[in-house]
Design a protein around this nucleic acid. Structure first.
Lengths: 245, 245
DNA sequence: AAGGTACTGTAAAGCTTTTGTAAAGTCGGA
DNA sequence: TCCGACTTTACAAAAGCTTTACAGTACCTT
């Protein structure tokens, strides 16, 4: 399922060149960029003012990246970016006056992906364009980390170490977290205390060991503060089970 | 274990100096430059006309950087650059008449890495030389251009080595900077101490190692001087997490 | 149905581990 | 040698885990 998506992405990328939209009123510069980028592996389109640039970006076709100048007459780069972001998530590399912190921060806040101060050299521009594309594929492929879980109104995100019950955040210790995760992974099935002890605490269950009971008790207490619904069922003489719904 | 790595790095850097070829017909200037750059960490060679300069660049030996004057009798800087680029990718910093856009653009088109208008001051020259080398190592290190980050009112600019919290500049050591960067790259996600140690300090976390804790503590202290808001959350037994907002 | 037995729930106390941070120590570069 | 940065040490505080203790519950036996 994930595979198919990744493949189609990759194929899509290989079949036709990446397309770049350049929006800058400096015709000398845009000509040079078009020539330079055009020779490489990009399809390039140029707009020399903000208005036509925005129109092209929104309804002219798909672009993989937009190079957007800040200083332009009529509609400046920030306006373009603001309006673009209403409907499009196209990556944007802003071209700003060198070293202008305010511009940079504003740009990043408006959702620019990176920026480059003018004047820039082509090598740096290429590097940043490549960096953006690289980052994009990384994000879309997603790292193979522990998956988020959602069972019976309980949401668990290992990467953020966050649990939510009915959309209310619950603060859990890491043992409670792991215990809940194990139960969720086996939702609807009983999980023995031995298994919990081994997988969560990393040690076999001792004869009069009550610690698992305590952790489950604490979990119940924390969830009960949010919902009256009983999520964890006791299976006497065996262990526990998370109700699937 | 760490020692060995650090040593070899240092040694590698010290073994040979970066070499610079200066091509300029102004002998007064070249003498001065040779003297100035020679005292720093560079090996310098001078050619006073385009022809000999090109010959030296192509077959005289390896150069890490070429300072190339545009205005020269016989063969001007553009001609040199054009011929050089047929076979060599040596970084070139062009010396042009101040503010001459045409020269600048032509130079960049021909593959110059940067330009500097005459007259220039030494400090600026040094800064640009260093910038070129820095960029180069970045690119050759895998093209990992480090982009600026903005998360939860924290602004981080690796290229400028500047951090701002609520627009107030914070002075960080490089370790603190890298640590903060790693946390920001994973904002909203937990980052283990092991990962911080590996990626920031370049060594695995030792059993009773507290240095990461100290760096985080110092980071918190510096940020607390500006805002009471807690940016870095502790995840007990795991590591830390930068709050996304 | 009554009583016995074993298991479970949980508050509270006790113990261990982890963390925060000041301060001292170490190291490498100017 | 001095200085700044990083690390280690030391100890207090915090947080989490386990044990204890006892009340309650389920299930079996008679």
């Amino acid at each position: 399922m994930n595979q198919a998506l990744a493949e189609s992405n990759t194929m899509g990328a290989n079949i036709h060149l990446k397309s770049i939209l350049i929006i800058d009123d400096d015709t000398e510069l845009t000509e040079m960029l078009a020539a330079y980028l055009g020779t490489a592996e990009y399809r390039v389109k140029v707009c020399n003012d903000g208005q036509s640039g925005l129109a092209e970006a929104v309804s002219g076709g798909h672009y993989d990246l937009i190079l957007l100048d800040v200083m332009m007459p009529k509609m400046d780069g920030f306006d373009v970016l603001k309006k673009l972001r209403v409907s499009h998530a196209t990556p944007v590399l802003m071209l700003t006056a060198r070293g202008d912190d305010y511009d940079r921060i504003l740009g990043l806040e408006l959702g620019a992906d990176d920026y480059l101060g003018k004047p820039f050299n082509h090598r740096e521009l290429m590097a940043r364009i490549k960096a953006i594309f690289r980052r994009l594929t990384l994000v879309s492929n997603g790292g193979a980390i522990e998956q988020d879980l959602l069972v019976n109104s309980i949401f668990l995100s290992p990467s953020a170490q966050v649990a939510k019950v009915d959309d209310v955040e619950v603060t859990l210790t890491s043992t409670e977290f792991s215990t809940l995760r194990l139960l969720m992974l086996n939702a609807g099935n009983r999980v023995t205390k031995e298994e919990i002890s081994l997988k969560v605490l990393g040690k076999p269950l001792q004869p009069f060991d009550r610690s698992i009971d305590m952790h489950v008790s604490n979990l119940r207490k924390k969830m009960a503060a949010i919902t009256p619904q009983e999520k964890i069922k006791t299976i006497r003489g065996v262990g526990y089970m998370l109700m699937p719904h």
